[in-house]
């Protein structure tokens, strides 16, 4: 029983960074922008969060720094692609490479250092309930924040006027402009939100999951987050599910390795990626549904006239 709870808690820890990164990118893509630089924004968040927490001793300062670092990177992406009309795909790739490089440089001084892990919040009484208590009510604040974000984004997109405008911009930016909405403004705000989420997701790796700084510690999670957004057909609830699916397979395969099952460790390590890709292919098999859900202006440049 204890082992099951341990595994389930492990899954939550493995999934949370992906939840952050994916929900941020989901909002960005709903506004019609394809930001392939999540990996770069995550790693910048990871080093910024770690460095600030290490130097100041404050987790809160670290998390804020991580969000800030992600937002700065997203702002850079936004200025390049939305104002200077650079190609989104190329700029996103460049942002990833740039982020990994800067983070490695900045992290040189922190190599091998470690901090204390972020304390869990034990919710009064509820956390004492057997099984459910440790599973649902004894996590660090960022886990709760990630869930609140998913619910909040879902509410924002479907229930608010601002969310409607954001979806409209992603669906038909020329029409949105003609009616009088600021396409670039909406996209910039979406990008900054996405950058902050990716930054916090990265900080979760270096502050909670490990907690130490290792170069390239995001290990492709930014790309997985991108895949999750597509697999989720741009719906927040499904993105949460996708993140937990990937996190789940990651943790379970580790435990299978631990039990000494006679399968090559390399093959098991591949499992989360393979499962995610297979699920993605199966889900998006229906061409018509995929087209219906995808933001129609995704990745297209917007040239406004005034």
């Amino acid at each position: 029983m204890d082992l099951t709870i341990l595994i389930l808690q492990g899954i939550i820890v493995a999934a949370t960074p992906l939840v952050f990164a994916a929900i941020g990118e989901l909002v960005v893509e709903r506004a019609g922008v394809l930001n392939l630089g999540i990996e770069g924004m995550m790693i910048l968040g990871a080093i910024a969060g770690f460095a600030v927490t290490y130097d100041t001793g404050s987790f809160l300062a670290g998390v804020i720094a991580a969000a800030f670092a992600g937002a700065i990177a997203a702002l850079l992406f936004g200025v390049l692609t939305q104002v200077l009309m650079a190609n989104q795909v190329a700029t996103g790739l460049a942002l990833t490479i740039f982020g990994l490089g800067i983070a490695a440089l900045w992290g040189q001084a922190y190599s091998g250092a470690s901090t204390d892990a972020l304390d869990a919040i034990h919710i009064y009484l509820l956390s004492d309930i057997p099984i459910i208590g440790p599973l649902l009510f004894s996590h660090d604040p960022l886990v709760y924040l990630s869930i609140i974000l998913v619910v909040g984004v879902s509410w924002f997109l479907n229930k608010t006027r601002a969310g409607l405008i954001l979806r409209a911009v992603g669906d038909n930016h020329d029409a949105a402009h003609a009616i009088g909405y600021s396409v670039v403004g909406v996209r910039m705000m979406a990008l900054i939100f996405g950058g902050m989420c990716a930054g916090i997701g990265g900080a979760y790796l270096s502050l909670v999951q490990t907690p130490l700084w290792v170069e390239n510690m995001t290990a492709g999670r930014g790309w997985i987050a991108l895949a999750i957004v597509v697999f989720a057909a741009w719906r927040p609830g499904w993105a949460l599910l996708g993140a937990y699916l990937f996190g789940g397979v990651t943790v379970i395969q580790l435990h299978i390795q631990g039990f000494g099952v006679d399968i090559d460790a390399q093959l098991l390590s591949m499992l989360p990626y393979i499962v995610t890709i297979v699920v993605l292919v199966v889900i998006s098999r229906d061409k018509i549904r995929a087209k219906l859900n995808a933001p129609a202006c995704l990745g297209k440049p917007f040239f406004g006239s005034s």
Partner: peptide
């Protein structure tokens, strides 16, 4: 507008509200 300023994946009511 000549080229309608409508959003295909949104409902009639949502389109009206946006305008």
């Amino acid at each position: 507008f000549q080229h309608f300023s409508l959003f295909e994946s949104l409902s009639v009511a949502e389109n009206v509200a946006l305008g």
